[in-house]
Design a protein around this nucleic acid. Sequence first.
RNA 1: GGAGAGGUGGCGGAGUGGUCGAACGCGCCGGAUUCGAAAUCCGGUUUACGGUUAUGCCGUAACGUGGGUUCGAAUCCCACCCUCUCCGCCA
Length: 425
Amino acid sequence: MLDPALLRSHLADTAARLKTRGYDLDVAAIESLEAGRKRLATETQELQALRNSRSKAIGQAKAKGEDVASIMAEVAGIGDNLKANETTLDEVQSKLSAIALGIPNLPDATVPLGKDENENVEVSRWGTPRSFDFSVKDHVELGERYGWLDGETGAKLSGARFTVLRGQLARLHRALAQFMLDLHTGEHGYTECNVPLLVNPETMQGTGQLPKFEEDLFATAVGDAKRYLIPTAEVSLTNLVRDSIVEANALPMKLTAHTPCFRAEAGSYGKDVKGMIRQHQFEKVELVQIVEPSTSLDALEELTGHAEKVLQKLELPYRKMALCTGDMGFAAAKTYDLEVWLPSQNTWREISSCSNCTDFQARRMQARWRNPATGKPELVHTLNGSGLAVGRCLIAVMENNQNADGSISVPEVLRPYMGGADRIA
RNA sequence: GGAGAGGUGGCGGAGUGGUCGAACGCGCCGGAUUCGAAAUCCGGUUUACGGUUAUGCCGUAACGUGGGUUCGAAUCCCACCCUCUCCGCCA
């Protein structure tokens, strides 16, 4: 959520900034609702003040044993007026808040302007795509060869976009997740968390998935309780500080978790249908930081570096992209994507997305810290990033490390997790 | 699933219809005392929104959530959520 003050006092400017990310703010609707809200709020408060003072007078009169009939008569009509006013005010406020919950974050000033992914800016590149002296296979072919990767059975069990992994490939998948967690906890200072995968609607609203993107989520309903499967551990980790005030010395808070992620992938029909690039269920090691507002831009650089470190240690070539205003996610003020090289597609594919959400999620969550300078609770800034998507990372390792005979070399850093094996076949 | 207890300010904990935004204690902040500290004493110590002759003052709202009764609700009624204890079941 944006600061409501922006919608009251700097509406035109805010609309212009949102326009750069392709969002059309309904300025006229907000102006008229806002005018009504202010008038109704003032009137309601005046009526309440009147009622309170009269009621108090009744109490005092009664205490002295005086007759209260005349005051009672005087106050009789207030209640109905007040109720009508409050009802209308509630309606106006819920309309305003429905609008507010649907407005994306404002882009940071350093974000390149652009309308879609074609205008993202390459910031840096690491490693060199390997040149093969044989014809490269994609991960599906490499995986099916040994019965490691089985999309057909996945479809039998659950439908399209589900995959079964077996044997050495399943182990390599686990090794990747373990390696990532160990790296982030051991060298980058993150605290490992094990978090709920099913969360309530309040939690989903806190990070911005609800109310706008419900169709992207898998939902469950047991009795009257509605819960959603997390599309990313960002949801659970970030909401750890929902409705709380953290002390300054607890910041920055650096959290990581390895979880399955569930995405409905509505609207992506026909995209990446083959293999395990785009699945309804995949695993990810997530990085989240809760920081003091003044440090969040630096924290984004740091957090992105932590994700990059995984790729570097795995010796996978990648490039770092600064997303343009038109391509950023709903909650993000600034985002870097990491794209890994996939030989079979002869292109770069997203494997991590690291965002600074500034106070956007914090405001939705009422997540605050006590600023020693003011002594007051103030909103924190939240950041998140994939470090990394395990399934896509597995694909990248398979394809980049494949040998002419179809075997796959195990990256040095994963060997301890693979019983010392240097290749799987 | 059955039975019971409870949800109040940073924490503990009073408060069962009328100056209750809320006693008291702890914690925290400022001051006094002290060479300094401890102890002691005095004062202060929630948040949001609105208005202001604004480093202050005034109004409104908030005692799990949402409704209801009432001139007036932390207090009474209803529904829901959550926590705890015991029993059952269970990885």
